[in-house]
Amino acid sequence: MHRERIPVYVVTGFLGSGKSTLLARWLKETPFCNAALIVNEIGEIGIDHAMLGFAGDTSMLLADACVCCSGLPALNEALAQLFWARLHRSIARFEMVVIETTGLANPGPLIASLSLDAFVKERYCIAGTFTTIAAPTARDTLARFAEARAQLEGADVVIVTKTDLVSSEELAAVEAHLPGARVAHSANASLGLHDALSMFALPAPDIERAVARPLSRPRSHDAITHFIAIDDAIDLDTLHARVRSLIDQYGDSLLRLKGFVRIKEQDAPALVQFAHGDAFAHITRGTANTVRSGLTLIVKPGASRQARAQETHAP
């Protein structure tokens, strides 16, 4: 019997490339507003999941494991749970699934696993993969991180983000380093979902796709996550000083810093974000009050003992 399969879109991109900001916009637009959402984070606190503001029965968080390494069984289990809940009408009927991976995920093993699990393969199909890469740091990121190169190799559409922060000459230099995928631009999440999906209608580039390769052996990424709890509300000056201190201590080893922190005399926490290549951390007013107050750090191994010793102390 023919069974119509549920399309799955994968959104990936290296740490700090702006994929969550872009996805937050898309989830408010048709057809993603009628999608089920699976968010994967390697930290123990679901910060990206909270930032997306897409709560409910059709939103699932896979935390503290990367789906392309040890998280593949959990992903397939999540898809199975969503299918049965949809079938039994215990959740709102969704028309598709959107998976946001960690910033270190290789989409190749993930996509291959969906075609190898019999239950998932029968009920779901991959509709496309978006990969984001930040224009200001693209060349350095691709030179330093194999994960970023693998993300581009597995992309149907590459979205070059933060294009407002580079010149037209610099943007052209970035695109010269990209594989022959379909390429779109976005500045401050300016790329709408309709325009992003329309990229799939363009002729597919004649390149070797990572998804066509055999499923590689899962491995752990060359990065470590730490969570620094900040349970008591602090003032903004103290938060700025603490974040600057962490950035200075870890230096080039710090790949990502993000979190929600409770602020004195404010009803909403502060949202803190920093990615490698940024000149400074961005601290803005957040909206999530259900996430534990603190900072998640993603660092390369070999960070200084001084930095590690201070991780467990809140300001």
Score class of each variant (00 low, 15 high):
Met96Pro: 01
Trp84Phe: 08
Phe94Trp: 08
Leu104Pro: 02
Arg86Thr: 14
Pro73Ala: 10
Glu100Phe: 07
Ala80Trp: 08
Glu77Leu: 07
Leu72Ile: 09
Ala78Trp: 02
Phe83Ala: 01
Ala80Asn: 11
Leu82Asn: 06
Thr102Trp: 14
Ala74Leu: 08
Ala105Glu: 07
Thr102Glu: 15
Met96Tyr: 01
Asn106His: 14
Met96Trp: 06
Val98Asn: 10
Glu100Pro: 11
Met96Cys: 15
Arg93Val: 11
Asn106Ile: 07
Ala74Thr: 01
Ala74Ser: 03
Gly103Pro: 11
Cys69Gly: 04
Phe94Ser: 15
Glu77Gly: 00
Ala85Gln: 14
Asn76Tyr: 01
Asn76Cys: 04
Leu75Cys: 08
Ile91Lys: 06
Ser90Cys: 00
Leu72Cys: 02
His88Tyr: 00
Glu95Phe: 05
Leu104Phe: 13
Glu95Asp: 13
Arg93Pro: 11
Asn106Ala: 12
Ser90Trp: 14
Leu72Trp: 04
Glu95Thr: 15
Phe83Leu: 04
Cys69Trp: 03
Glu100Cys: 13
Cys69Ile: 06
Trp84Leu: 10
Val98Gly: 06
Ala105Asn: 09
Ile91Asp: 03
Val98Leu: 09
Asn106Met: 09
Gly71Leu: 09
Leu72Met: 10
Arg86Ile: 12
Asn76Met: 02
Leu79Ala: 06
Val98Ser: 07
Arg86Glu: 11
Gly71Asp: 05
Trp84Glu: 09
Glu100Lys: 13
Leu75Gln: 06
Leu82Tyr: 05
Ala85Pro: 03
Gly71Tyr: 04
Leu72Gln: 03
Arg93Asn: 15
Ala78Leu: 12
Leu104His: 08
Cys69Lys: 12
Gly103Ser: 11
Pro73Leu: 14
Ser70Tyr: 06
Val97Ile: 13
Ile99Leu: 15
Gly103Lys: 11
